[in-house]
Amino acid sequence: MTSKYRRTEPIDVLLVEDNPGDVRLTKEAFKDGQIANTLHVVGNGVDALDFLFQRNDYADAPRPGLVLLDLNLPRKNGDEVLEELHGDPDRRRIPVLVLTSSEAEIDIVQSYELCANGYLTKPVDPNEFITMIQELERFWLSIMRLPTDTDLD
């Protein structure tokens, strides 16, 4: 792949994950893959929405260019986060990839009905998980054109 297809500016990525092991593996994948994007982490659905809507403790949070969202979260689950996020005209363009352990067809269908941009099942093997995150970076954060704040004006 030639460099003309690669994104030159890093973006902010929001990881919404309550499992410390998966957070650690994701951070490791970003570090090992020399991913220049900034990874922010919250551990529940309420904090995710506060981050995305820049309220409470996250009033100064950057607008993420991509959200990696687990479905099984405390306080508000991933479906509730998707529903609220995509119900807001100012935030519905933020791409959301569901990153979960569920392989249930009902979860896949529901996520896409709530406007998820993709659905990824977490591999059990830690090395496969890291590889998946690095492949995700190559595609979503290097090749795909994502909306920016200026695209929204």
Score class of each variant (00 low, 15 high):
39 L>F: 07
40 H>Q: 00
40 H>T: 04
40 H>G: 02
41 V>A: 07
42 V>H: 03
43 G>D: 13
43 G>C: 11
43 G>T: 14
44 N>W: 08
45 G>D: 05
45 G>P: 02
46 V>G: 00
46 V>S: 05
46 V>W: 02
47 D>P: 04
49 L>T: 02
50 D>M: 01
50 D>I: 01
51 F>P: 00
52 L>F: 06
54 Q>E: 10
54 Q>N: 12
55 R>P: 01
55 R>L: 08
55 R>M: 09
55 R>N: 11
56 N>C: 09
57 D>W: 04
58 Y>E: 08
58 Y>A: 04
60 D>F: 13
61 A>D: 11
61 A>E: 08
61 A>G: 07
61 A>N: 03
62 P>S: 11
62 P>I: 09
63 R>A: 13
63 R>M: 12
64 P>K: 00
64 P>C: 07
64 P>Q: 01
65 G>M: 01
65 G>Q: 03
65 G>C: 07
66 L>I: 10
68 L>E: 05
68 L>W: 00
69 L>N: 00
69 L>C: 05
69 L>R: 04
70 D>F: 09
71 L>A: 05
71 L>S: 01
71 L>K: 00
72 N>E: 12
73 L>G: 06
73 L>M: 05
75 R>K: 08
76 K>F: 11
76 K>H: 11
79 D>G: 12
79 D>K: 00
81 V>L: 05
81 V>S: 07
82 L>Y: 05
82 L>S: 01
84 E>S: 13
84 E>W: 12
85 L>K: 02
86 H>C: 14
86 H>F: 14
87 G>C: 10
87 G>D: 13
87 G>W: 11
89 P>A: 15
91 R>P: 09
92 R>C: 15
93 R>A: 15
93 R>H: 15
94 I>G: 00
94 I>C: 06
94 I>K: 03
95 P>I: 05
96 V>R: 03
99 L>A: 15
100 T>A: 12
100 T>R: 02
102 S>F: 13
102 S>E: 12
102 S>P: 06
103 E>Y: 13
103 E>S: 15
104 A>D: 15
105 E>I: 12
106 I>V: 15
106 I>P: 00
107 D>F: 12
108 I>R: 15
110 Q>W: 13
110 Q>G: 12
110 Q>F: 14
111 S>E: 09
111 S>D: 12
111 S>G: 14
111 S>L: 03
111 S>H: 10
112 Y>N: 08
113 E>I: 07
114 L>V: 06
116 A>W: 08
116 A>E: 09
117 N>E: 15
117 N>P: 02
118 G>A: 13
119 Y>T: 06
119 Y>P: 04
120 L>H: 04
120 L>D: 01
120 L>C: 12
121 T>I: 14
121 T>S: 07
122 K>C: 10
124 V>K: 06
125 D>F: 09
